[in-house]
Design a protein around this nucleic acid. Structure first.
Length: 417
DNA sequence: CCTCCACAGGAAGCGCAGGAGT
DNA sequence: ACTCCTGCGCTTCCTGTGGAGG
């Protein structure tokens, strides 16, 4: 009895620390990229434009198609979702025959899947999976015609649809055929090249009206962050300068609101872990570092295994200080010839019973590694015999070595040293 | 100046997996 | 369920290039 009592007193529930309210966060969800804010600063122009285009649907006529273009994190998705949900709400209240459907084409990546999704929205309690494409098409047009419905379909990441031309053609044809209803498209893409891949006819019907979402500048990002911080964090939990810094980082990188938000979220988590009551500049800086490291780790981890070995060979040679080269008079550190890297790579590959790739493909790997910014290379120039590349590691050798050894398992570090 | 070195990088082709068409 | 086709990763072969060395 006594023993049990003691034990229970000493034992703390594992979830206790989670349960207690945070000193930093008030509502963590609001500072995640997933969250759709109900106010979108600096997008008034775009919102107004979309509304004027769509509002004719409330009067029973067919709106023009819209095409929204802009880089990631510029508010395309948030704007579309917001406008469509408001349109839905308004139409419901006013009893107007208007439907708004939003879907991400990463999940609905073919003409068939998109049409099936639309029809499924029309008949929520029925299941049309397995029916032929033409049957679905008929169902769709029938529903619009009979109920005199104006349908707006928001197709996010429309570039992911394999047969876009057919999809757009089918939807515009449906729209033309309908006498009493209509189907309009809002296409969303972040690829500049997407438009050029389209059939000219598709292009003219889809991109008739085009809206550009420019990247945010630092001032705008600050404003956006401030608004979110107010709702997501406790009062005065984030220093003003920390917000500015996060905005400045994100603006310099891409003008992407998503990364700005992610940065603050991470900074908040760091502050919380340290038991602090305030998020300062330092946490934002650390957050940036940790995000960057995560990105490089992610990048390295998704490399083909042979390419990992190439990178590993470079990091080993660099760590062994074999990279001190005399180039004419001057001496440079951490520089390797592509030939010696290839030899080392072959050695490593053979030692773990992997077939090394050919020299030609090895060079291709080097090109890719350079594109990712993991290595730098320059033509040899004078001081070096022959025509070769001088290779330098983009990051610290020890970091990359550690990540790779972790990733590839210990078998390498045992056989090679 | 020519030759050789140590590569760079284009072109063609090969085997394979996975998607489209039937 | 079947073949057919296409794209991809890779090899093989080849020509080009820039400096070192004789």
């Amino acid at each position: 009895m006594v023993e049990i009592d003691l034990g229970e007193k000493m034992k703390e529930n594992l979830f206790k620390s989670v349960e207690k309210t945070s000193k930093i966060f008030k509502n963590r969800d609001i500072i995640t990229p997933h969250y759709t804010p109900e106010k979108l600063p600096f997008r008034e122009k775009q919102i107004k434009e979309i509304i004027t285009t769509l509002s004719v649907a409330l009067k029973g006529s067919k709106p023009n198609n819209l095409f929204l273009y802009g880089k990631t994190g510029t508010g395309k998705t948030a704007t579309t979702k917001l406008v469509l949900s408001d349109l839905k709400e308004f139409a419901k209240k006013e009893k107007k025959p208007v439907m708004a459907i939003y879907m991400n084409c990463r999940n609905y990546n073919s003409k068939y899947k998109v049409l099936a999704k639309i029809v499924q929205k029309f008949y929520p309690d029925k299941d049309f999976i397995g029916y032929s494409g033409s049957f679905i098409y008929e169902k769709m047009t029938d529903f619009c015609e009979k109920n005199k419905i104006q349908t707006i379909v928001g197709l996010d990441e429309i570039d992911k649809v394999k047969d876009v031309d057919e999809l757009v053609y089918a939807l515009t044809r449906a729209n033309d055929e309908l006498k009493k209803g209509g189907i309009s498209i809002i296409g969303i893409s972040n690829q500049l090249t997407f438009k050029d891949r389209l059939d000219p006819r598709t292009k003219s019907s889809l991109c008739g009206k085009e809206l550009v979402f420019p990247p945010y500048n630092a001032k705008e990002l600050t404003e956006i962050l401030r608004e979110r911080v107010e709702k997501a964090f406790q009062k005065d939990a984030v220093m003003e300068s920390a917000i500015n810094l996060a905005a400045a980082f994100a603006a310099r990188e891409s003008g992407d609101a998503r990364t700005a938000v992610m940065l603050l979220l991470r900074a908040g988590e760091l502050a919380e872990k340290k038991g602090m009551e305030k998020v300062t500049d330092q946490e934002v800086k650390d957050a940036k570092k940790s995000v960057e490291q995560e990105i490089t780790m992610e990048m390295i981890n998704t490399l083909p295994s042979q390419q990992k070995l190439v990178l590993y060979a470079i990091s080993i040679l660099t760590a062994q200080k074999k990279g001190v080269k005399k180039l004419g008079k001057s001496e440079e550190k951490g520089v390797l010839f592509s030939g010696e890297v290839f030899d080392e790579y072959k050695k490593i590959a053979l030692s773990i019973k992997e077939n090394p790739v050919s020299a030609r493909w090895f060079r291709q790997y080097l090109d890719e590694l350079e594109m990712y910014g993991l290595i730098f290379s320059t033509p040899s120039g004078k001081g070096v015999r022959g025509n070769t590349r001088l290779i330098k590691l983009g990051l610290e050798a020890a970091t990359i070595k550690r990540i790779l050894e972790n990733d590839l398992g210990l078998d390498i570090s045992l056989t090679v040293h």
